[in-house]
């Protein structure tokens, strides 16, 4: 394990070479994570809202919406042909 290979493509993992830059880099990563998580929650909430809205529709309204959606899907599929 540690008998060969060393020194070919060494990556330096020494910490605190430049503490300020390392902190700034960490902060950016943390912000990105928070943003990502929050966006996921927002997307999820939107989905729940949509489910709730659909629940409140009548049977006919739902069917009409489904048909419209399917038609649209088909149209897109036809126009796109293959996956791009």
């Amino acid at each position: 394990w540690d008998d060969e290979e060393e020194d070919e493509d060494e990556v330096d993992d020494t910490d605190d070479l430049d503490p300020e830059a390392e902190y700034a880099a960490w902060k950016l990563r943390e912000l990105k994570r928070i943003k990502r998580d929050r966006e996921a929650i927002e997307a999820h909430e939107k989905e729940l809202e949509e489910i709730e809205r659909r629940k409140n529709l009548t049977e006919e309204e739902r069917k009409a919406e489904d048909d419209a959606f399917l038609a649209k899907q088909k149209e897109e599929k036809d126009s796109k042909g293959k996956m791009s």
């Binding site: 493509d9 990556v11 330096d12 993992d13 910490d15 390392e22 880099a25």
Partner: peptide, 26 residues
């Protein structure tokens, strides 16, 4: 440990790269 910004070396099939404890945990 998402607060731990220390560097780690990650070795994959293709080679080594730098990562961080917080990134690893995430």
């Amino acid at each position: 440990f998402l607060e731990d910004k220390r560097k780690l070396v990650m070795r994959t099939r293709t080679g080594k790269r730098l990562t961080f404890m917080d990134e690893f945990v995430d």
